[in-house]
Design a protein around this nucleic acid. Structure first.
Lengths: 157, 157
DNA sequence: GCGAGATGGTTCTCATGTAAACTATCTCGA
DNA sequence: TCGAGATAGTTTACATGAGAACCATCTCGC
């Protein structure tokens, strides 16, 4: 700090930790809001995440879904159990590999997933989507930069 | 879209939904990293959140903590049970109100909380803190703007 | 073609989260 | 002062998450 003139209005100092807290709380709030939307169609967030991933990757195995969703395969196991129970997903045998199953959406599963995707898209559109396009692009850029720093930090350790 | 000249390189269109996904995944990744740091001192994220809140609000009731942490009071009940069990927190009676307790950190609880705060601050400093200060300020600005849109959306509904 | 290690799933235990029912206590107006 | 409603906490039921132990099956080098 070589600033010696105290006469101009002090710019608010930026504390990364404070920004981190805001970031986390916002994510918490937004997830709760999206979760509330999804609940109206009978889905939880993890269930919806799994179904919507399946719409783009029909026939995935549980292991693939676990990697995609960043959760353990044990977790996916129970999640799929409940979705099968609810009639939204099917486990189909894979010829030539008796260890794994191909997961497929049922008619109802696909329909619910699509309604969920629409609800999610609508929520994002009427919150983030109302910011100036430049801000959204800027947010993406900063998020990607932050991610890179996180990767570097993880690599160092 | 009144743009008629197709000759210049198309700017990457910004899809708010894609930015939302990046945002959520980044938060997931960062929380996992902070959680790993905290685990080395024997705390989970929720435990740490509760302890660090207590360092600033010694004597809070469980209800107050629940509001502050955005979780249910039932959840805080079990969390405090485990922290008391671990010798990090005490429930003290409040004269004049036999329904509630004032929560206080024990010596060990305060010490652990402070180590956790330092670890968290260090992690944020070596990821977000390495971005240009302008980016951090910009991120905060956009996060606050997004939060306002989320509030408006919630109010409309 | 066999056996060691890799891979896919399930299951266990435990922590955390919600929602809702329940108990104890407090507050306040008639 | 009494009793209805508010408030603080606990408890129960259940979903979700991690991590680790465990089985079945598959792959690959020899």
């Amino acid at each position: 700090m070589t600033q010696t003139l105290a006469s101009r209005p002090a710019p608010e100092p930026v504390d990364p930790l404070r920004v981190w807290f805001r970031f986390v709380r916002l994510q918490h709030r937004l997830s709760a809001a999206v979760g509330a939307e999804l609940r109206t169609i009978g889905l939880s967030i993890p269930q919806f995440d799994l179904l919507s991933t399946l719409t783009e990757r029909e026939g995935s195995t549980q292991q693939e879904l676990a990697e995609r969703l960043y959760v353990t395969k044990g977790n996916v196991s129970g999640l799929v159990d409940r979705l099968v129970e609810a009639g939204l997903v099917e486990r189909r045998p894979i010829p030539g590999d008796r260890r794994s199953h191909a997961l497929h959406l049922t008619e109802r599963g696909r329909s619910l997933a699509e309604r969920g995707i629409a609800a999610q898209r609508a929520y994002v559109a009427r919150t983030l989507g109302r910011l100036p396009a430049g801000d959204v692009a800027e947010l993406e850029r900063i998020v990607l930069a932050w991610r890179e720093e996180a990767r570097s930090a993880a690599a160092e350790a």
